[in-house]
């Protein structure tokens, strides 16, 4: 297991809040009943933090990431991301917020199967439409170099290993230089060694780029890399300031 390197952008306690959830609630109708995935969550994540969400399956980790990631809206309470109340934003404004400020890393990588590595990473830049072709190529090559996939640029996702695919997903999430990257169990489909390397890479990017990361995980080893572990159980935050030495605690919730 690697040890976190000294950070160029250490998350200070007085850094401005990037994510603020206040009494955030998410209910899903299920037939005649209502299932509450989140039951009033209060949480603040500051710029530059590397935060792990821990909790058993069904505890609400993914729902919390969905709300912060603006792919879902809270039933009650407020969710503020980059200073904006997501509940007050239009569909178009939410899409723009996702495109310009957020990056996503999925458990199943979710790469576009028909595009090669370069094209997958370039895709969000094309959606933004801000850079020229040459600028995009330069940006993509830089990030590809950082995630160590220079020799795989022309390969399609099906030709890559799980670890390589997740590196592509990380590169795609970071290529637009977002302020916040959300990763939903990014190591779940990887062997432990590859998972470690992926978290190391994310941690390194957090340090060097100052990008805020919030990732969910079941794996206590992975949690040890986080600045802070937010523990969730039954749709509630039970500990928002937990240390990364959490093995026994997490086991207790599982």
């Amino acid at each position: 297991m690697s040890t976190p390197t000294p950070s160029k952008h250490t998350a200070a306690a007085d850094a401005p809040p990037l994510v603020e959830l206040t009494a955030a609630r998410k209910d899903y109708p299920l037939g005649r009943t209502v299932v509450s995935a989140l039951r009033g969550v209060d949480l603040v994540v500051r710029r530059g933090e590397f935060v792990a969400l821990a909790g058993p399956s069904g505890s609400g980790k993914t729902t919390l990431l969905n709300l912060v990631g603006c792919v879902d809206v809270a039933t009650a309470g407020t969710v503020r991301v980059a200073g904006q109340d997501t509940g007050q934003l239009s569909e178009g404004a939410l899409t723009k917020l996702r495109l310009d400020s957020l990056g996503f890393i999925f458990q199943s990588f979710n790469l576009i199967a028909v595009l090669d590595v370069f094209q997958n990473i370039e895709f969000p830049l094309l959606l933004q439409g801000k850079l020229s072709k040459a600028e995009r190529a330069e940006r993509v090559r830089a990030i590809v170099d950082k995630v160590g996939l220079t020799n795989q640029m022309k390969q399609r996702p099906a030709e890559l290993s799980g670890g390589q695919r997740q590196r592509v997903a990380i590169a795609r999430a970071l290529v637009t230089r977002p302020t916040l990257v959300l990763a939903d169990e990014p190591t779940a489909n990887l062997d432990s060694e590859t998972g470690e390397r992926i978290i190391d890479l994310m941690r390194d990017l957090n340090h060097t780029e100052g990008t805020t990361f919030i990732f969910s995980t079941h794996d206590p080893k992975i949690m040890t890399h986080a600045d802070r572990v937010v523990r969730i159980a039954d749709g509630r935050v039970v500990d928002a300031a937990g240390s990364s030495d959490t093995h026994a605690h997490v086991q207790g919730h599982a």
Binding site: V71, E91, T95, K96, F104, F106, P124, L127
Partner: peptide, 16 residues
């Protein structure tokens, strides 16, 4: 469906 969801999450608009 998953691909559509991914593209929407990344920032693809409904029109796109």
């Amino acid at each position: 469906t998953r691909e559509i969801g991914t593209m929407r999450a990344i920032g693809m608009s409904r029109g796109q």
